[in-house]
Design a protein around this nucleic acid. Structure first.
Length: 803
RNA sequence: GCGGGUAUGGCGGAAUAGGCAGACGCAAGAGACUUAAAAUCUCUCGGGGGUAACCCCGUGCCGGUUCAAGUCCGGCUACCCGCACCA
C-alpha cells in the first residue's frame, strides 16, 4: 500500500473541487425522503473577514448535516449574507467606495474562507439581503405589516447615537451607549416607523411552549417579553372629570396607597398646567428629566427626586381619602400607564420616595418589621391589616377579592402587562432597505403598489448621515419627489431605511425557494421544508434577531403565508471563542487568531477538529495553539494507520464491543452537541489500534466514516486510498448492535465501607452470589469476616460494609 | 437588586440515572530510534506518607442525606453573562 506524508494542502483543495464537480451538497429534489433543515446564522460580511468564532457553529451544524445525509435525510443546509449595515456604510464613507462594492468584496473573501473550511453548504441557494431580488420581499412583508396596521409612524423619544447619527432600538443600547460604536446615546424625539411587536407578545410567549429551545434561551425570551398580571385602577382627580389610571401587580395593597406619582411625560401635566399652582417648578423638573437619557435617569436612581403638584389631588377609590400627586422620573411613561399608586410600606422605591418627602407610610400587610423603619416587600405569607373589608385575608386572596371589588364598582379591572415595547423600525441611513411608503399631503402615508417592488436604493453621491438626523436619501430630491399612488398628486418618499434586523427576520424562508420571483417562496417549498429543524446561533441574538424573526413568522402565519406559526423547532447556542489569555479576542488585546493561518499551516480538517474538541460547545472556550497541534497529531495518526491495515472486512473479536460502543457514542454525541467527547472516543479507538499495531479494513473504514463529518477531506482521501467504493460522503452511517456492546467479562470495583479496595473480573452473566463471593475472597483475608451488609449494584459496583 | 451560568490536576476539559474522580488532549519527565536534534513510538504523570504490599487526603467554602456525593438537599463565597426605578 502506498504511503506518503499527510499533505493537507494537496488533499483539501482536491476534495473541495470534487465535491463541487459532483454537486455533492446541492439539496436533493427527492421529497419522499425525510427532510432535515439545518440552519446557522448567516454572517455579516465584515471587512475583517472570518474570525475563529465563526467556524464553531458552522462546523457543528456541518457535522450534523453530513451525518444526517449519510442517514438518508434530505438535508437543507444553506448559507447567505446579512449584508446591510453600518460598518459597511462607514467603510464606504471613509474610503469613498460604494457600499455595494464593499459588500461584494467582503462576500467574496468570506466565501473563499468558508470554502477553504470544506463546509457542505448548498451554495446554489445563497441569499444576500442587499440583493434587490431579495429585499423586494423584505419590502413586501413590510407592506403586509403596514396593511394590517402593524406598521405605524409615531413621534417617539428614540435612542439617538451621537456618533452614528442614527436611531437605535432599545435592544441596541447597551449600558447607555451605542452597542456598535460605544458612543453616548441621548433621547431625541423623532417621527419613526414602528412595528407593533407588542401585539404579538402573548403569541411569542405561548409559542415557546411548542418549541425545543435550550432552557436559557427560552428563559431570556420570557424575561424580555416580561409578562405580568395585575390590575388597572382608576383614581379620580379631585374636582375634575379625568381619572388617573394606574397599573399595579399589588392591588391588595390599595388601602396603603398614600400618594400618587406620574412620570414627567404624563399628559395630565400639560392638560392641567393652569391648575398646578407651582407650575414653574414642575416645568423645570420636566425639562431636567427630558435632558437625561433613560440611562442617566436610572444611573441617578439612588436618590429619589420629584415635585408635588400643588392644586391637584387624587382620591383613593377604596377609602375615598384624598392623596397628593407628585411628578418624578422614577416613574416611566413607557411602562404601564405612566402613573402609579405609591404604597410606601410595601414597595422599596415608594418607601425611599416617602422618606425623602416625609409622606405617610401605612402598613397593610402584617408580618414585617416596623414599616416606618424598614420596607416590607417579601409578603408571601403576610396577612392583610388596615384594609377594611380585606382585613385578615392572605395576600393572594386579597388580590382576588380586590379585583372582584374593583370590577363590580367599575373602578378597575384585571390587566396583563408586558415589558416588551414596539420595535423602532426606522434608520436614518443609506445602506438598508428603502421603506416602500410615500407621504401624500392629502392621503397620508400610502404604500407603493406591490408591482413597483423592489423599490431600489438610488445611487447617491454621499452616504454621509446628516447632522439634522435625516437620512442621506433625503438629499436626493429626484428620488424623494414622486406621485401619490392613491390620488396621483405630488408626494414624497419615505427616506428612512429599515434596520439590519429586517432582512434577517425571514431569510430562512427564502432558502426554501431562493430564486422564486412570484412569491418569497412557494407554498409547496415551505410546506416541505418548514419549520427549521435545528437552528444554532449566538446567545447575543436571543432577544433581538430571534424574537424579531419569530414575530414576523407568526405574522406571516396569521396572513396565511407560511404553514406553521413557529419558525424554528430546535434552537441551540454556542459559546464564544476567547483568546489564549481567556479574554475576548480583540485587536487591542492582541490576542486575535486568524483562521486563514490555521488552515494554511495545519489544514481545514485540523481546524474543524480543534474547534469541536476545544470544550463544551455551549460554553466559552479559550484558544490554545498547542491544542491545535494535538488535533493535527491525531489526524496524522489516522493517516498513518493506513500502513497497518489488515485485509479483513470485519471487526477483530477483541475490539468488537469497543467498536459498537464507539458508534453509539459518536452518533448520539453529534446530536447532543457533545463533539468534544465524540472526538475523544475516536481518539481512544485509534489508540487501541496503535496498541495492537494493527487495524482491520472494516475497523478502519468504520473509523473513517465516523470521522468524516468532522474531518471530511482526509477521511475521503483515505477512503479512496484504501479502495473504498464511491465517495465516503455517500456511504451509509454505521449502525451499532446493542447486543454486541457487552463483553464476556466485566471488571467490577469492590469497595469496603465505601472505599475502593480492588477490582474483580467476573463473567458478565455471573450470578449475584458468585460475584459477591468473588468480592469477599478479594478482601476477606484482610478485613476479616465481620461483614454486616453486602451491596451489589448490577454491572456497577460492590460495596461490603464491615464493622 | 432580579434572572441565568460557571467553579474539578501545571493547563484545556471528561464523568448517562448518585456507583473506580481526572476519559481525551496539552504541557512535563523517562526510555527507544538518531551522530545529534526534530518528528515518531512506548511508558510515567492530583497531593502526601511508606523499602514495600499498601495507607491517608483531594472536585470553590460550611453543614446534611446515603452503604456510596463532583453529582442530591440546606447555607455561603468568587467570577462571568443578561436585565435593571417594569409599579
Amino acid at each position: 500500500m502506498q504511503f506518503e506524508p499527510y499533505n493537507h494542502k494537496e488533499i483539501e483543495p482536491k476534495w473541495q473541487n470534487i465535491w463541487d464537480d459532483n454537486e455533492a451538497w446541492v439539496t436533493g429534489e427527492d421529497k419522499s425522503r425525510p427532510k432535515f433543515y439545518a440552519l446557522v446564522e448567516f454572517p455579516y460580511p465584515s471587512g475583517q473577514g472570518l474570525h475563529v468564532g465563526h467556524p464553531r457553529p458552522y462546523t457543528a451544524m456541518d457535522i450534523v448535516s453530513r451525518k444526517r445525509r449519510m442517514q438518508g435525510y434530505n438535508v437543507l443546509f444553506p448559507m447567505g449574507w446579512d449584508a446591510f449595515g453600518l460598518p459597511t456604510e462607514n467603510y464606504a464613507i471613509k474610503n469613498k467606495i460604494h457600499p455595494k462594492v464593499v459588500t461584494e468584496n467582503n462576500v467574496k473573501r468570506f466565501k473563499s474562507q468558508l470554502r477553504s473550511l470544506g463546509y457542505s453548504f448548498d451554495w446554489t441557494r445563497e441569499v444576500n439581503t442587499t440583493d434587490p431580488g431579495y429585499y423586494k420581499w423584505t419590502q413586501w412583508i413590510f407592506l403586509q405589516l403596514f396593511k394590517k396596521g402593524l406598521a405605524y409612524k409615531a413621534e417617539m423619544p428614540i435612542n439617538w447615537c451621537t456618533s452614528c447619527k442614527v436611531g437605535l432600538a432599545n435592544e441596541e443600547v447597551v449600558n447607555g451607549v451605542c452597542e456598535r460604536c460605544g458612543s453616548e446615546v441621548i433621547r431625541k424625539v423623532k417621527s419613526q416607523w414602528m412595528l407593533k411587536i407588542t401585539e404579538y407578545a402573548e403569541k411569542l410567549l405561548q409559542g415557546l411552549d411548542d418549541v425545543d429551545y435550550v432552557e436559557k434561551i427560552a428563559v431570556s425570551q420570557r424575561n424580555w417579553i416580561g409578562r405580568s398580571t395585575g390590575a388597572e385602577v382608576d383614581f379620580s382627580i379631585k374636582g375634575k372629570e379625568d381619572k388617573l389610571h394606574v397599573y399595579t401587580t399589588r392591588c391588595d395593597t390599595l388601602f396603603g396607597a398614600t400618594y400618587m406619582v406620574v412620570s414627567p411625560e404624563h399628559p395630565i401635566l400639560e392638560k392641567y398646567s393652569s391648575d398646578i399652582e407651582n407650575w414653574s417648578d414642575v416645568a423645570a423638573y420636566r425639562e431636567q428629566a427630558a435632558r437625561k437619557s433613560d440611562f442617566e435617569r436610572s444611573e441617578l436612581a439612588k436618590e429619589k427626586t420629584g415635585v408635588v403638584l400643588k392644586g391637584l389631588s387624587a382620591v383613593n377609590p377604596v377609602n375615598e381619602k384624598e392623596i397628593p400627586i407628585f411628578v418624578s422620573d422614577y416613574v416611566l411613561m413607557s411602562y404601564g400607564t405612566g402613573a402609579i399608586m405609591a404604597v410606601p410600606a410595601h414597595d422599596e422605591r415608594d418607601w425611599d420616595f416617602a422618606k425623602a418627602f416625609n409622606l405617610p407610610i401605612i402598613e397593610v400587610v402584617a408580618g414585617g418589621e416596623n414599616v416606618q423603619e424598614k420596607v416590607y416587600t417579601d409578603v408571601a405569607d403576610g396577612i392583610m391589616v388596615n384594609s377594611g373589608f380585606m382585613d385578615g385575608l392572605s395576600v393572594k386572596d386579597a388580590q382576588k377579592k380586590m379585583i372582584e371589588f374593583l370590577t363590580e364598582k367599575g373602578i378597575g379591572r384585571a390587566k396583563t402587562n408586558y415589558k416588551l415595547r414596539d420595535w423602532v423600525f426606522s434608520r436614518q441611513r443609506y445602506w438598508g432597505e428603502p421603506i416602500p411608503i410615500v407621504k401624500c399631503d392629502k392621503c397620508g402615508y400610502v404604500p407603493i403598489d406591490e408591482s413597483q417592488l423592489p423599490l431600489l436604493l438610488p445611487e447617491v453621491d454621499s452616504y454621509m448621515p446628516t447632522d439634522d438626523g435625516e437620512s442621506p436619501l433625503s438629499k436626493m430630491t429626484d428620488w424623494v419627489n414622486t406621485t401619490c399612488p392613491c390620488c396621483g398628486g405630488p408626494a414624497k418618499r419615505e427616506t428612512d431605511t429599515m434596520p439590519q434586523w429586517a432582512g434577517s427576520s425571514w431569510y430562512f424562508l427564502r432558502y426554501c425557494d431562493p430564486k422564486n420571483d412570484k412569491e418569497f417562496a412557494s407554498k409547496e417549498a415551505l410546506e416541505y421544508w418548514m419549520n427549521v429543524d435545528w437552528y444554532n446561533g449566538g446567545m447575543e441574538h436571543t432577544t433581538l434577531h430571534l424574537l424579531y424573526s419569530r414575530f414576523w413568522h407568526h405574522f406571516l402565519y396569521d396572513i396565511g403565508c407560511v404553514p406553521c406559526p413557529e419558525p424554528y423547532h430546535r434552537r441551540t447556542s454556542h459559546g464564544m471563542i476567547l483568546g489564549s489569555n481567556g479574554e475576548k479576542m480583540s485587536k487591542s488585546r492582541g490576542n486575535v487568531v486568524n483562521p486563514d493561518e490555521i488552515v494554511d499551516e495545519f489544514g481545514a480538517d485540523t481546524m474543524r477538529t480543534y474547534e469541536m474538541f476545544i470544550g463544551a460547545f455551549e460554553l466559552s472556550a479559550s484558544w490554545q495553539e498547542e491544542g491545535v497541534k494535538g488535533c493535527r497529531r491525531f489526524l496524522e495518526r489516522v493517516w498513518k494507520l493506513q500502513t497497518m491495515v489488515k485485509d479483513d472486512p470485519g471487526y477483530s473479536s477483541d475490539l468488537e464491543s469497543t467498536v459498537h460502543r464507539t458508534i453509539k457514542k459518536v452518533s448520539s454525541d453529534f446530536e447532543t452537541l457533545k463533539f468534544n467527547t465524540a472526538i475523544a472516543a475516536m481518539m481512544s479507538l485509534v489508540n487501541e489500534f496503535y496498541r495492537k499495531n494493527e487495524v482491520t479494513l472494516g475497523e478502519y473504514r468504520l473509523l473513517l466514516t465516523l470521522l468524516n463529518p468532522v474531518a471530511p477531506h482526509i477521511t475521503e482521501e483515505l477512503w479512496q486510498r484504501t479502495g473504498g467504493e464511491g465517495f465516503l460522503y455517500q456511504q451509509k452511517w454505521p449502525e451499532y448492535d446493542e447486543a454486541k456492546m457487552v463483553d464476556d467479562t466485566m471488571e467490577l470495583p469492590v469497595q469496603v465501607n465505601g472505599k475502593v479496595r480492588g477490582t474483580v473480573n467476573v463473567s458478565t452473566d455471573a450470578s449475584k452470589d458468585d460475584i459477591l463471593s468473588a468480592a469477599k475472597e478479594l478482601v476477606g483475608t484482610k478485613y476479616g469476616e465481620n461483614i454486616v451488609k453486602e451491596i451489589y449494584v448490577p454491572g456497577k459496583i460492590i460495596n461490603l460494609i464491615i464493622k
